[in-house]
Amino acid sequence: MDEPLLSLRTTLVFLLALIAGTTVGTLTALAGEGTPHSLLAGLATAGLAVPFFNRLIDAEGSRNQQREHADADAGEGPGNG
């Protein structure tokens, strides 16, 4: 029961999506659109921001893993030089 409900990475992705959605919704409302349009714009932005930030945050980890797998497949390493 001491484990967190969400990981730090998941929390960061959702927080960034929430900030993006809120920003777009507020800017849409300030531009003179109605509340329904502002709400839809904010929700759409938040929905699209989740996979964007998910890939953006994981990009560095994926590159390192791909590089390690490529080195292992190529037979490179300290013992094969």
Rank of each mutant, 00 (worst) to 15 (best):
L6V: 06
F53I: 03
A72N: 13
T35Y: 00
G61A: 15
L6A: 06
L18Y: 02
L18I: 03
G42V: 01
G81I: 08
D73K: 14
A31F: 05
T45P: 04
L48V: 15
A31V: 01
T28W: 02
S38A: 08
G75Y: 14
F52H: 07
L12H: 05
N54D: 15
F14R: 03
G42M: 03
A49S: 14
L8G: 07
Q66H: 12
S7E: 09
L27Y: 07
E68V: 14
G25E: 00
A59E: 10
I57G: 09
I57W: 13
L48W: 09
L56E: 04
L16H: 05
L40C: 02
G42W: 03
G47W: 11
T26D: 01
F14S: 02
T10S: 09
A59T: 09
A49I: 08
A41R: 02
Q66F: 11
A74I: 05
V50G: 10
N64V: 14
S7Y: 08
A70W: 10
T35E: 00
L15Y: 03
T45W: 05
T28K: 01
L43H: 04
A31H: 04
L48S: 11
G81M: 09
A74V: 06
G77R: 11
L48M: 14
F14I: 08
H69W: 12
A46R: 06
L27H: 06
L43N: 06
M1Y: 03
N80H: 13
G21C: 04
Q66V: 12
L5A: 10
T35I: 00
L18N: 01
E3G: 07
A31C: 02
L6P: 04
G81K: 08
A46M: 13
R63Y: 11
P51E: 12
R9A: 08
L39V: 06
R63L: 15
A49F: 09
D73E: 15
L39K: 01
P4A: 09
L48N: 07
T22H: 01
R9I: 07
R67A: 15
A20T: 09
R67W: 11
V13R: 06
R55V: 07
N64E: 15
D71L: 15
D71W: 12
L30F: 02
F14Q: 04
A70T: 12
R67C: 08
L5D: 04
H69P: 02
A31P: 01
G34C: 00
D73I: 12
F52W: 12
E60Y: 14
T23W: 03
G47A: 15
L48E: 06
L12V: 09
L12M: 11
V24G: 02
G42F: 03
G61W: 06
I19T: 07
A46W: 05
T35W: 00
L18K: 02
S62C: 08
L43F: 12
P4Q: 10
H69N: 14
H37M: 00
L39T: 01
H37Y: 00
G32A: 02
A46T: 07
G77L: 12
V50N: 10
Q65I: 14
N54Y: 13
P36M: 00
D71P: 05
G32S: 04
L39S: 01
D58L: 10
L6G: 02
R55F: 14
P78T: 05
V13A: 05
D73H: 13
A59Q: 11
A72P: 08
E76H: 09
L15A: 12
